[in-house]
Amino acid sequence: MSPRKRSAGRQGWPDNLYPNKGGFKYRHPVTKRETFMGRDQAKAFAAAKKLNAMLLPGNDLVDKVIGSRETVADAIAVFRRDDVPGRNWAPKTAEVYESVIRRTEAGIGSRPVEEVTVKDCAEFIRGVTESDRARQQFRLVLGWIMACAVQEGWIDTNPVLATRRFQHERKRARLTKEAYSAIWEKAEPWLRLAMDLSLVTLLRREDVVSLKFSDVRDGFLWVVPQKTEGSTLVKLKIRIGDELSTLLAQARDTVLSPYVVHRLPDRARPSNKRAAARQHHTQVMPEQVTRAFLDAREAAGIKGDNPPSFHEIRSLGGALLSESGWAIEQVQGLMGHSSTSMTEHYLEGHDTPWQEVQTGSVLVR
C-alpha cells in the first residue's frame, strides 16, 4: 500500500515526523508512541531520518550496510524450535504458554532485540494485562525468549531479569472438612466417589477420572499423573490401604465400565458424536466433574467471591495427612511434587499442626 499523500506544507518531511505545538513530534512506527523532538527543524529532520532507518521494518538499504537485525520474533522462533520441545509441557500448559507467546509476538515481535530495554519490557508486561498473576506469567515467558537472544549472541544481557517480579496472593478459598462434608452430602454417587478418591490419593481431577480398574494390581494403584507425564516423569505406585480398598470396592457396581469413576450418560449418543477424548460411554470427563462439583457446592450453600473448587480437595487431603503425623516429604511423594516448597504451598491456609520435638544436651558448665 502506498503511503498517504503529504500536504503541500509537509512535502519533503521524513516519515513519522509531524508538527506539534510550534515544534515537531516523532511517532514510533511500531509502538505508535509519540515523542516531542523540539523546535529546531534541521535537528528534528535528522533525528527522524535516523530513527526511520533504525525502526522501519524491511529497510533493505540500511541492512545492506549494517546487516539484518534480529527481532523479538526471531528470538521467539528460536525459543519455539530449540526450547519448547524439551520442556514437555502438558497439553493445557502448552496451550496457555502458546497464548502468551503469541500475544508477546503481536505486541513487540517486530522490535530489534538489541533495542529492547528494561523499560520496554516493564511497559509491555504492565500494559498487556492488569492481573498480577498474568503479568508474572508474561514476565517469565519473555525472560525465556530474551534468554534465547542472549544464547544466540544477539545481545549481551537479558533485560527482563531486571524487571519487577509480580506477586499474587492465592484468592481461592481453602476447602474445610465441614465444607467437604456439606458438598459430599449434595453430590451424586459418582461425584462422591471422585471426591473421596481425590481426598485419599491426592490425585488431580484429570487423574481421578482417568483411573481404570486395570490400574489396580499387586496391592497397588499404578498412576502416571497427566500433568507430569513426559516432563518430571513422576510415576506413582500408591499402596492400597483400607480406605482406598473400600472405595475401589464401592466402585464395582452394576454398571459395566473399565473406569473406576463412571456414570451412565443421561442420553445415548452415537459414537461419532461423543466428545473426542471420550473412549467409553460411561467415562466421566474432567469438565463434568467441575460442573457437578459446582452444582453440589451451590446446593450446599457454600458461596463467596472465590469458593473452593474440586482441586482444593488435594490441598485438604494433604493437610489432613499432615495433621495425622505425615512428614512433609511423605505428602510431597503422594502429591507427586518435585519439591517440598510446592507441597508447602498447597498446605498453606490450613491449620499447621503442632509438632512434638525434644531438646538435646548442649549446655556447657
Score class of each variant (00 low, 15 high):
M1E: 13
K5H: 00
P19I: 02
P19Y: 01
N20C: 11
G22S: 06
P29T: 08
D40R: 12
A46W: 08
A46P: 08
A47E: 14
L56V: 11
P57W: 06
G67C: 06
R69V: 11
R69C: 05
F79D: 12
F79I: 11
N88D: 14
P91H: 10
R102I: 05
E114D: 04
E114P: 01
E115G: 12
T129Q: 13
A134W: 04
A134C: 04
A134N: 05
F138P: 01
R139I: 02
C148P: 00
Q151I: 01
W154S: 07
D156R: 09
L175R: 10
L175A: 03
S181H: 11
L199G: 06
E206S: 14
E206Q: 11
F220R: 12
V234Y: 06
V234W: 10
K237I: 10
L248C: 04
R252D: 12
L256W: 08
S257F: 10
P258D: 08
V261I: 00
A268D: 10
A277P: 01
Q283L: 02
V284R: 00
P286H: 00
R297N: 07
G301P: 12
S309C: 03
A319F: 09
A319T: 11
L321M: 15
I328K: 07
T343K: 01
H345W: 01
L363M: 00
